[in-house]
Each structure stands twice: as structure tokens, then as C-alpha cells.
Simulated assay, not measured.
Amino acid sequence: MKILAIAGSNSDTSINKMLVTYAASLIPDAEVEIVDMNAFEMPIYKHQREVESGVPQEAKNLADKIDAADLLLVSLSEHNGTYSSAFKNVFDWTSRIKDRAVWNEKPMLLMATAPGGRGGLGVLEAAEKRFPLHGGNIIETFSLPFFNDNFNRESLSISNEEKNNELKEKMSKIAALESILEK
């Protein structure tokens, strides 16, 4: 199984990147690629720029990675209740590729974490409404509140037993679904 793990943040110390990396580790023997948003830095989307220059190669590269994956793990950072500007710009450009949906109907676990008690619920709600309009096949969602209290940075794992079990259960469900689809 090929997993594309996307952290919707361009932070070098992204807590969402830590979470999505941990989630990917829960499916044994998977081929995992962790996406760094910094590798997809592009000019801010502008219609005139698209008309003059077309869609940047970076957006096409991300689309190719999505197409090659069997499963998408997407963990979004929350900035003012919605996507980070880095993620939103990549999403906008990728949505402009002709004759394709951004997520291409790939099965997806949509996640978020944050230092606060809502655990990125604002961005999850926004993505749950928007992603299906762009080919998002959201199988499960997961939120980890109080990241600093519930995640062990040294072992790169969830330290809160209840939340850890919740994520493991969701990952098992997704892995089982994927094995059914392969038959």
C-alpha cells in the first residue's frame, strides 16, 4: 500500500507533520511518503498569473503524488479557524489543473491537531465541507486536542491512551477497507 502523508503546514516544527507521520507508521509494511509543504511553494494564486503562466509544475507534481497513492493521510494545521495559507495556496493551484479533481477520489483520513482544546476542529469542519467538492473521499476524521499534553515528541507517538486507541482503530478500519478494495 502506498500512503501519501500530507501535513498542511510549512512549519519546520509542524505538529501536524508529527501527527501524520505517526499515523502513517500504524500501517505496517506500507510505502510512505511524507509531503513537506515547503517543496510545493508557489506564487500566490491569481487568475491573471494562471492565464499568463499556467499552473506551476509544483502543483502538477503534487497531483502526480496523489494519483500514485492508495491512501491519503492529511493533517491540517489551523490558522484562524481554517487552512494555513501555505496549504490553501497549494490546494488552490492544484484545483486549477484541467480535467482532474484535487484528491482524485482517493480514500483519505483527515486529521488535525493543535495546542488548544478544540484540536483543529475549525479546519476539519472546513475541509469536511470543501474536500468532497474536489474529489475528497473522506473515510474517517481524527482530532488531537492539547497536542503538547497528548503527544510524545521523543517517541513521535500519541501519549493519551484513549486518543491513541481511537486513531489506531480508525487506521485499522482504513487499512481493512484498502485490502478489500485491492481484491
Results as ranks from 00 to 15, higher is better:
L110S: 02
T141C: 02
S53W: 15
L19H: 09
F146L: 15
N38S: 11
M1K: 10
I66N: 02
F131G: 01
Q57V: 11
E161Q: 10
T141K: 03
N80K: 01
M108T: 10
E166Y: 09
A126V: 12
I174Y: 07
T21C: 07
M42E: 04
D92E: 09
L177I: 07
P132Q: 02
F147H: 07
N10F: 09
S172P: 06
E58M: 11
K106W: 04
P145D: 00
E178L: 15
K129M: 13
Y45Q: 03
I97P: 08
N148Q: 14
E162W: 08
V20M: 06
N10A: 15
L144V: 01
V123M: 03
A68Q: 09
G54F: 07
A101D: 15
I66H: 05
I34V: 10
A69D: 08
M42D: 04
N16E: 05
I15S: 07
F131I: 00
K2C: 00
S84K: 00
N152Q: 06
L181R: 14
L73E: 04
S155Y: 11
S9D: 00
E52R: 14
S14I: 00
R96S: 05
I34E: 03
E161A: 09
E58G: 07
R153L: 13
K183F: 13
L133V: 09
L177N: 08
H79G: 01
K17D: 02
E58K: 15
H47Q: 15
N104W: 10
P132D: 00
S77W: 02
V123C: 01
K17M: 12
E166C: 11
I180Q: 15
K98M: 12
E31R: 08
S9M: 06
I180N: 15
E78K: 11
T113W: 04
F40V: 01
A126N: 12
T21D: 08
Y83V: 03
D70L: 02
L72Y: 04
Y83N: 08
K2W: 01
P43D: 13
G116C: 04
I180D: 14
A114Q: 09
N165W: 09
K183N: 15
